[in-house]
Structure formats: structure tokens, C-alpha cells
């Protein structure tokens, strides 16, 4: 049963998959990791973005990646709006914001799911592009081109966001607000505006991530439920708010899933992300490279 080639293949494909996982989680790494917003609706917005891409691709034959880029401004606005609502109703009132916040985002996720179902139905949807459906052979290993495209875009997206957070003025302000909100206020900046901007960026990134999601595989409205586990697993394993950690954690998850898939079959795959998440929470809650909880 066991063969070295199979394992090697699993590791290669897992690494590609892992970068993709990092790309879909990196927004959550900002919104939940840095801003402490219990954003359970993040995967629902991700699937929503995929449907946006599907719409543009299906109606106007726009390339999926370009379509992802086109819907990014809309998602930025969506992020601004959602954060404003969350801030006004939960953060400012202060009382058990966590409990109600989670319930709020679950409600939002359900609403998004159903709106997608009502608009597009429950069938799977996919996009068409020249690089989808072909694959690249190295020896016995077949790598689908769509995986390579997703890998490349995911990697650049993660690197760009990391640079943005460490090199630009606004990026540094975002990291500052995560470290000490009061200090930022004393410096004369408005922490709420900074957080709102950061949440906008975190949601805007979903435009591209959604394009990757539908490039890698067909999407269906309830797909966000599988990604709750994956995205939170990556963000917690990374260590809250660490962008480099997000990339490493994504690859670990991708390789783990792909090995389990080859060794034990697809029926065990959904539990991997959650089992890792539980393990991390129990053993090392600060994650790989994170700040202390």
C-alpha cells in the first residue's frame, strides 16, 4: 500500500493546496487575529465572492482572476459596513460582546448562504478559463495547472499583505491598533477608523481568495461550513495575527489533509482541520508564531 512516490505526490500537492488555504485565511488572520473580531462569517463572504466571480465569468466571460480583482472594491465597502455595524452594536456597548458577536456573525453567515441559494440554487458552479482542466506532468506526478495558478496567486497575495502590514504607514497603524489601542488614541489617531480600514482590507482580499476558491474546485452555497474549520485552524495554528505564520500553517494543513486523503480516503478529510485546531487550542494556544492570548 505504502509507496514513497505516493507520499511525495501528496506532499507536493499538499504544499500547493496549503498556499491556497493561507490565501483564503489571510483575511481572517487580520480580522480575527489582529482585530479580535469573531468573524465566523468570513468563509461565507469567501463563498459569496466566488459566486460574484462566477457571475462575471458566466455572463461576460471575464477571466476569473480579473473578476476577483474587479469585485475587490465592493468587498472593501462591504467590510467597512460590516465593521461599522459590529462596532456600533457590540464593541461600543461592551457587554458580552463576544457571545453576541459570534451569534451575530453566524446569523450573517446563514443569511449569505440562503441568499446565494435563492439566487443561484444549490447546484455546484464552476468557472471556465484557458488554464482550467489542463495539467502538467513531472514523471508520474500530475499537477493540475489550476492548482499552480492558485498557488502562485496565493503566494503573492500573502507576501503583498505581509509587506503592506510591515512597510506602509497604514499597515503599521493596523498592527499598532492590535497591540495597544489606548496608546494609538493617545497619539491622536482614531483606533476605530484604523480598525475599520483594516477590516475593509481583510474583506477586500476575499475578492481574490474567492476567485481562487472557484478556480481550484466547483463551489456550492454551503461550502463555507467546511471552510470555517480550515480558516480558523490556519489562523489559530499560525498564532493570531502572524502573516508568515499563516503561510506556514496553511502549508501544514494542506500537507496533512493531502496525506490523510491518499492514505485513508476522502471520508476522513473534513475532520483534519478541526482535529488540528482542537489539538493546537489544547496544547499550544498561542500558535506557531503568535502573540500570547
Amino acid at each position: 500500500m505504502f509507496s514513497f512516490d505516493l507520499l511525495l505526490g501528496a506532499i507536493v500537492l499538499g504544499t500547493l493546496l496549503g498556499c491556497f488555504y493561507a490565501a483564503v485565511s489571510i483575511g481572517l488572520s487580520v480580522s480575527f487575529g489582529l482585530l479580535d473580531v469573531p468573524h465566523v462569517a468570513h468563509p461565507a463572504f469567501l463563498v459569496l465572492a466566488s459566486y460574484g466571480v462566477y457571475l462575471l465569468n458566466d455572463r461576460y466571460e471575464v477571466d476569473p482572476l480579473l473578476a476577483g480583482l474587479l469585485i475587490t472594491p465592493l468587498f472593501f465597502l462591504l467590510g467597512l459596513f460590516v465593521y461599522r455595524l459590529y462596532h456600533e452594536t457590540f464593541e461600543r456597548r461592551g457587554t458580552d460582546a463576544a457571545v453576541r458577536g459570534i451569534a451575530f456573525f453566524f446569523g450573517v453567515a446563514f443569511i449569505v448562504e440562503v441568499l446565494i441559494v435563492l439566487q443561484f440554487g444549490v447546484d455546484q458552479r464552476s468557472v471556465t478559463a484557458s488554464y482550467i482542466g489542463r495539467s502538467w506532468r513531472i514523471g508520474d506526478l500530475r499537477i493540475p495547472i489550476r492548482q499552480l495558478v492558485a498557488f502562485a496567486v496565493a503566494l503573492s497575495l500573502t507576501i503583498l499583505l505581509t509587506l503592506y502590514l510591515s512597510k506602509t504607514f497604514m499597515g503599521r497603524a493596523i498592527r499598532a491598533v492590535a497591540q495597544d489601542q489606548e496608546a494609538l488614541r493617545l497619539m491622536g489617531a482614531n483606533p476605530v477608523r484604523v480598525k475599520q480600514w483594516a477590516f475593509g482590507i481583510a474583506t477586500a482580499v476575499l475578492g481574490i481568495a474567492g476567485a481562487l476558491l472557484i478556480i481550484v474546485a466547483p463551489v456550492e452555497p454551503m461550502l463555507d461550513r467546511a471552510y470555517i474549520g480550515r480558516t480558523f485552524c490556519v489562523v489559530v495554528l499560525a498564532g493570531l495575527g502572524s502573516m508568515t505564520g499563516t503561510l506556514i500553517a496553511g502549508i501544514i494543513l494542506g500537507v496533512a489533509e493531502s496525506i490523510v486523503l491518499t492514505m485513508f480516503g476522502a471520508s476522513w478529510a473534513p475532520a483534519i482541520a478541526f482535529a488540528m485546531l482542537l489539538g493546537v487550542l489544547a496544547v499550544r494556544p498561542q500558535g506557531l508564531l503568535g502573540r500570547r492570548l
Binding site: 480575527f32 469573531p38 478541526f274
Partner: peptide, 11 residues
């Protein structure tokens, strides 16, 4: 907080 919630979904 949310870590408890996420852990229960995981289970």
C-alpha cells in the same frame, strides 16, 4: 469566548 465556540464546532 470564541475559542470555546470554535472548539465545540470542531468536536
Amino acid at each position: 469566548g470564541i475559542f470555546f465556540s470554535i472548539a465545540t464546532i470542531a468536536l
